[in-house]
Structures are given as structure tokens and as C-alpha cells.
Design a protein around this nucleic acid. Structure first.
Length: 565
RNA sequence: CGGGGCGUGGCGCAGCCUGGAAGCGCACCUGCCUUGGGAGCAGGGGGUCGGAGGUUCAAAUCCUCUCGCCCCGACCA
């Protein structure tokens, strides 16, 4: 490709709409443009990168024996009503009516449709296992789209669905997909981690997320360097690493604490470490029952754990007015002593002595509260987020933490969709059975954003070789070098994605642009070429410069490609 | 949905408080010049100031409504 014939509208300045680095760079590199909130155009360069990712995904899925299909973007409401998701999916599902007033939606995911395909035409265990997948546009009407294509409303996703005759089959399909995902993200040149995850609205009980490691990731991952355990912090069991010293219980003492509300404020006011303070949160369950949740001041509540605890019931934090009505004191002065509602204490309070609690009276706290003698919780449970210092649930070594961007998520669904949709096959034993399903997603457009989030510097994007829209750029600094540049271009283009910068621009502009759009190898015909016919090769990632005779270039690139990791 | 902010040429912004001829930088076009890190000079084109209504002799500026976008929160592959 010749740069002059391509379309790369680069921007010199950061667009004001962008906050995170990948969003800024995607815009500045002329890869995407916004059409509406959470809805983007992919320009040629962005589209090319997207296709590279798609092709890696496609290749590995095909190798795993999955079959590519294409399902409709628009889906009839009837299918969603069969599984009940028409009512539970919420506003993320964009619904509309056609001219005949029939209900439809834009597909945010395709479990219903794919199950419909299979129930119509797969009749026998002999046709199983079957894995179908597509790479297609999805629409989720996010309440707050953000970060460009990282969390867009319309996005590209690879979604795959497995159908097995039994649970052992599902385990195999799941494992196959797990390994396929590892290969896909490795082939994309990404640093990532697979972690145990929360299943959310898709359902099922086992799931793993694939996280691209990046400082700016929205998710926190807890992992163990010793045994390899890794999970999304939403799920990580919190196992306290510190041992509480056994100290004699001191007498309960009421203290005046005017105007101090947060655990930190109370700690500062009383001169205790914040871990000695406990906070009590009031939650409303199913809009009928109130419970008090009691945690150490330096610990954070984990609502995903509450979901499990309250098994499917809805819950929310009580409003300030509700708290006053239920407890008789304002938030900030609530404690577990003498409450008429159920009290759930976090596990970390076990064995802890002489801590501070709210007095359930404005402007007062108690010192030296103790589990048992001061109050008896109705339940002690793990309801907090794991944090630095906690131990690995598998091997009890200290956990490490890092941030990640979720780019893939795999689930064991079981019969969650096949049962309500009556998707059955005839098994060996002559009985009709529902398919045992799994589903496997990759956010293809998000992978592009995550890649940039993980691979950039102050000058722009640094694309991994495998998904770089162009792998090599050739630039000549004098018109007289053009002929040789063309020759090199023709030669290297046969094997790699090469762009020849033939624009009538000053060198500075060209250098800035090629750094910005992240091409891994820069081939420069300049001073050295004038002097002794050597071309300069700059490696974008390291800034390293090497010099070759043109005839040795191909060899160098081949070696570079093989060593790139 | 709650809170905050912003809509002025393609991009980034000033002007608004205190009403009085729509500006700046970059980009774009022409010419000269320059050519290893987003050059310089000269000339030029391009804007219903998000939209509607109102106040006023006069509105980008003040008032009301409305639309869009961004950030924080709740939520989520």
C-alpha cells in the first residue's frame, strides 16, 4: 500500500472526548471515528487491525473444530420470551417494533438464536459435540458507554456455543475452548491471564475470564505466584493473612465523636488505625427486609458475594432516610449492638477484639466492642473484597493483585437455554435429553483497544507484529532514493503488510505519523543510504536502529518475525 | 437514572461574568522557501456560535425550553 493512496487522518492533538490512552490513540491514529455515543466507524487502518484479530480468532476456532456461521443482528422477541430473558435482560436490550407491530431486539448475545438453530436440525447424539461460532456485530444499550470502543454500545464480538450430549462432553468442550483462547491471545501478542469469574446474566456456574494485563484495566485480578490460582477479585475468597494478637476484652466505652462519619474520620479522630474501626452498612433485601453488614473499616464490601448470600434476591443499600427509620441514627454512627434487624459480620471480625463500632446514636461510637459479648451476629460470612496481605485460597501463600481488561469470557451453561427452549436430542439410550451447552465470547473490538492500552508509549501505539495493520513502513528522505524504496517495497510486500510513505511531507511529519500508528518496523532511506547504500531499520518498540544493505533486509525481517517475543 | 461539566470553521480552544463588527493555534488551498523528528514567510477559503423560543435598538454573551456529548456513580461480555 502507498500511504498517498490510503486514508489515515491522523490528529496532532488529543480529541477532548477521549479520556483513556487507547481511545485517544485510536482517534489520533485515524483508526476510528465516533458516530454517536458508543457507536463508532472503523476507518481503513482500524478496520485492517480488526481483521487481523478476527483472522487469528477464526484460524484457532477452526483448528478447534468449531464451525463458523452468521446469525441475524435483529432477533424476534418470541425467542427471548421462551427463555424469560425478554423480561429480565433490562434496558441493555434494545427493543423495537417492526411495521407489523411485532417485537424485535438488536442482538446483545445469541444463545436463543443458536439454540433455535440446533433444536430444529440436530436430532441425535451422533451429531454431537457441535461448536458453532460467529464473528459479528452486537448491540448492548449500555447505560454509560465509555472509553471509545473499550465499552461501546455497538461492538464486534466472536461468540461461540457448544452443544454436548452430557456433562463430561461439556467439560471437554470447555477445556478445548479454554486452550483455544490461550492460543488466540498468545497469537495476538498479548500478555494476559485466565481467571475464575462471576457468571452474571449469562448464567451457569463455572466461568473464566481472559484478562489483558494493563494498569488501566477496569477489573482487579487476584493471583498466586506460587500455585497459579487466579480469580477476578469479585470472586476471590478473602482469607485474612494477619494473625490477631489475643488480648483481654476491655470494658465497652461510649465516646463522643461529633461530626465524624467515615471509618477514616473516626480513626483519625480517635487516634486508632482504621482497621480498628468497624463500619456497619444497612441493606434492603427484596424491598422487604433490612440487614446490617459489619466490616472492618479498611475492608471493602463485595456485592457479588452478597448475591450468593442472598441467593438471587434483589438487594440495595438503604437510603439515609431508611437508615434513620430502621436504626434511629444516621449513617456513620451505625453499629451492630442492640439492632433489631439481622446482623451479618464479615469473617475478618472473628477473633478480633476491642474494636470501635457506631453507637446507633448520632455523634457517638463505642470503644472496645467484641464479637460475642457486645453483639452476636446472626451470621458470619465472607462478604468483603480480598486485598493486599490476604492469602491464596488454594495454597495460603500471599496473594498478588493486578489490573486487567476483560477480553474473553467462557461459561458452562448446562441446560439453562436448552431446557426452557426444549432443545432436545435422542440419546444412545433412546431418551430425549436437553443439550448441555457452553458459550464462549471474545470482544474483538475490545481486544484492539486493550492491545493499545497494553502496548504504547508517549509517541503512540506499538502494535504487536501479529496484529499490526501494517508491519513495515518504508520512508525515503530524498526523491532520488525513491526507485530503491520502490524495489524494497515490492519485495517485502510479497510476504508482509508494507506501507510505502510516498507523501510529499517533511521527514518530521512522516516520523511522527509512523510512530503514532504503531508500525513495528520502520525502514528509512536517508543519510546512510546516500553514503554507502545502507538502509536504516528502526524497531518501534525498542527504538533500536540497525543498518543493512537492501538485499539483506528480507532476511532480517524474517528473523525479527520469528524472535518477536 | 442521580451528580458535575461542555457544545463557537475539520481538530484544540479563547470570547460569555459586565450584550455593541466572530477570534486564536493547528489542519486545508496557492506561491516562495525548507527537507532526519509535527519548519518559515506571504496570500487565501471555510463558522445558521448545537436547536427553538423569549428579553433588547442590538444576543455567541441574559432568560426559558430542548437536543447532543463527556466525566463521576449505580450497572455490566
Amino acid at each position: 500500500m502507498r500511504w498517498s493512496k490510503f486514508f489515515i487522518p491522523t490528529l496532532r492533538e488529543d480529541p477532548s472526548e477521549a479520556e483513556i490512552i487507547s481511545h485517544k490513540l485510536l482517534l489520533r491514529a485515524g483508526m476510528i471515528r465516533k458516530l454517536a455515543s458508543g457507536i463508532y466507524n472503523f476507518l481503513p487502518l482500524g478496520f485492517k487491525a480488526l481483521k487481523k484479530i478476527e483472522n487469528i480468532v477464526r484460524e484457532e476456532m477452526n483448528k478447534a473444530g468449531a464451525l463458523e456461521i452468521l446469525m441475524p443482528f435483529v432477533q424476534p422477541a418470541e425467542l427471548w420470551k421462551e427463555t424469560g430473558r425478554w423480561d429480565v435482560y433490562g434496558k441493555e436490550l434494545l427493543r423495537f417494533k417492526d411495521r407489523k407491530e411485532h417485537d424485535f431486539c438488536l442482538g446483545p448475545t445469541h444463545e436463543e438464536v443458536v439454540t433455535e438453530i440446533v433444536r430444529k436440525d440436530v436430532k441425535s447424539y451422533k451429531e454431537l459435540p457441535l461448536i458453532l461460532y460467529q464473528i459479528a456485530v452486537k448491540f448492548r444499550d449500555e447505560m454509560r458507554p465509555r472509553f471509545g470502543i473499550m465499552r461501546a454500545r455497538e461492538f464486534i464480538m466472536k461468540d461461540a456455543y457448544s452443544f454436548d450430549a452430557d456433562w463430561e462432553g461439556l467439560d471437554k468442550s470447555y477445556q478445548l475452548m479454554y486452550e483455544t483462547y490461550e492460543r488466540i491471545f498468545t497469537n495476538c501478542g498479548l500478555k494476559f491471564k485466565a481467571v475464575e469469574a462471576h457468571t452474571g446474566t449469562i448464567g451457569g456456574d463455572v466461568s473464566h475470564e481472559f484478562m489483558v494485563l494493563a494498569e488501566t484495566g477496569e477489573d482487579v485480578i487476584a493471583f498466586c505466584e506460587k500455585c497459579g490460582y487466579a480469580s477476578n477479585i469479585e470472586l476471590t475468597p478473602a482469607i485474612l493473612g494477619e494473625k490477631y494478637p489475643s488480648e483481654p476484652e476491655k470494658p465497652l466505652e461510649k465516646v463522643y465523636t461529633p461530626g465524624v462519619r467515615t471509618a477514616q474520620e473516626v480513626a483519625d479522630f480517635l487516634g486508632f488505625p482504621v482497621s480498628k474501626i468497624t463500619k456497619t452498612l444497612i441493606y434492603i433485601i427484596d424491598e422487604t427486609e433490612a440487614v446490617a453488614l459489619c466490616l472492618r473499616g479498611d475492608h471493602e464490601l463485595n456485592e457479588v458475594k452478597l448475591e450468593k448470600l442472598f441467593s438471587g434476591k434483589t438487594f440495595r443499600m438503604a437510603t439515609e432516610e431508611e437508615v434513620k427509620k430502621i436504626v434511629g441514627a444516621s449513617p456513620g454512627f451505625i453499629g451492630p449492638k442492640d439492632l433489631k434487624i439481622k446482623v451479618i459480620a464479615d469473617k475478618a471480625l472473628e477473633g478480633y477484639s476491642n474494636f470501635v463500632i457506631g453507637a446507633n446514636e448520632d455523634e457517638y461510637h463505642y470503644l472496645n466492642a467484641n464479637l460475642g459479648s457486645t453483639f452476636k451476629p446472626d451470621l458470619i460470612a465472607d462478604i468483603r473484597k480480598a486485598k493486599e496481605g490476604d492469602l491464596c485460597p488454594k495454597c495460603r501463600e500471599p496473594l498478588s493483585f493486578t489490573r486487567g481488561i476483560e477480553v474473553g469470557h467462557i461459561f458452562k451453561l448446562g441446560t439453562k437455554y436448552s431446557e426452557p427452549m426444549k432443545a432436545m436430542f435422542l440419546d444412545k439410550d433412546g431418551k430425549m435429553k436437553p443439550f448441555i451447552m457452553g458459550c464462549y465470547g471474545i470482544g474483538v473490538s475490545r481486544v484492539l483497544a486493550a492491545t493499545i492500552e497494553q502496548n504504547h508509549d508517549e509517541n503512540g501505539i506499538i502494535f504487536p507484529w501479529q496484529i499490526a495493520p501494517f508491519q513495515i513502513v518504508i520512508v525515503y528522505l530524498k526523491e532520488t532514493f525513491k526507485e530503491e524504496a520502490e524495489k524494497i517495497y515490492k519485495n517485502l510486500s510479497q510476504k508482509w503488510d508494507v506501507i510505502l510513505d510516498d507523501r510529499e511531507e517533511r521527514p518530521g511529519v512522516k516520523f511522527k505519523d509512523m510512530d503514532l500508528i504503531g508500525i513495528p518496523l520502520h525502514i528509512i532511506l536517508g543519510k546512510r543510504f546516500e553514503e554507502n547504500r545502507e538502509v536504516e531499520v528502526k524497531i518501534r518498540k525498542t527504538g533500536e536502529r540497525k543498518y543493512f544493505k537492501p538485499e539483506n533486509l528480507e532476511n532480517f525481517v524474517r528473523n525479527f518475525e520469528n524472535e518477536k517475543d
